[in-house]
Design a protein around this nucleic acid. Sequence first.
DNA 1: CCACAATTCCCCACTTTTTCCCACATATTC
DNA 2: GAATATGTGGGAAAAAGTGGGGAATTGTGG
Lengths: 152, 152
Amino acid sequence: MHFRGINNIAVDAKGRMAMPARYRERLLEGCGGRLVVTVDRDHCLLVYPLPEWEVIESKLIELPSLNKQARLLQRLLIGHATELEMDAQGRILLPAMLRDFAGLKKKAVLIGQGKKLEIWDEETWSQSQEEWVTSVQSDDGELPAALEELSL
Amino acid sequence: MHFRGINNIAVDAKGRMAMPARYRERLLEGCGGRLVVTVDRDHCLLVYPLPEWEVIESKLIELPSLNKQARLLQRLLIGHATELEMDAQGRILLPAMLRDFAGLKKKAVLIGQGKKLEIWDEETWSQSQEEWVTSVQSDDGELPAALEELSL
DNA sequence: CCACAATTCCCCACTTTTTCCCACATATTC
DNA sequence: GAATATGTGGGAAAAAGTGGGGAATTGTGG
């Protein structure tokens, strides 16, 4: 019951993007099509089903307010969080401000990431992708313990 | 209940490939023909029976979201993981994006690797294979502990 | 409070992709 | 060599993706 996989999507002139059909039924059942979009440090957008988001939001709010990193995270994530719904065609309208943040142009990419979805500008995604493929295998020195033990 | 051995397979114009007959019955019994394909850093594709994949996926999701290496792995593996089923002829349709990633052309190679299968472009495979035969025996200096104790 | 502008929403129509099915070719087995 | 199983290709129906017009709503300024 997790999001996974990659989809090419088009963002039209009005800032709408069609949710892939395979996700729609699940989104309607799971949360009545109510979603929350916010931003990520890596300059992509995050899409959560509303109930999932609320869990994350309360975790964020609980963070110590005197910690600078925590405040930054709160402003970034909670500050940009926008609730929106799918229209009758299964599309969502991304607010202009969030589109700008992620540098979204016409072509975008939607990535399933477990509890959430990520939206990337296509160009940004493919560039980052190449870097990752090489960087993941190169610096094996700094891997956290959990990663070292991972068996695929 | 492990996959092993190597098969030459053809990828047709629509991106379909026939699963070797000896695997089909097992795949239907084990997971109702439900498979997950994702990518590997070595530019090949990995095919898991759905239940096997879900184990790996949950491990990945549990990794700390603030760790950069973890995020890269998540985006690479979960981000490309696509669920698919065999059709009536025992074929699977590989998404265009994954075919591109692995550089798949008409001729490919399917390799049993225990819990999973690997799909390689034939040319890439034969090239890599030669390199490995030489490189595996050369760098015995940096083996992790588990490898040092391995008795073949 | 009204008028105007901008944005959002809803609907329709078109294009592209995916899916399903059938048919044939090739290989294996008896 | 016939019969079964496997591999391969392609066509057509269905579904999904895409774009745009116009109504409705919101917001702004006079």
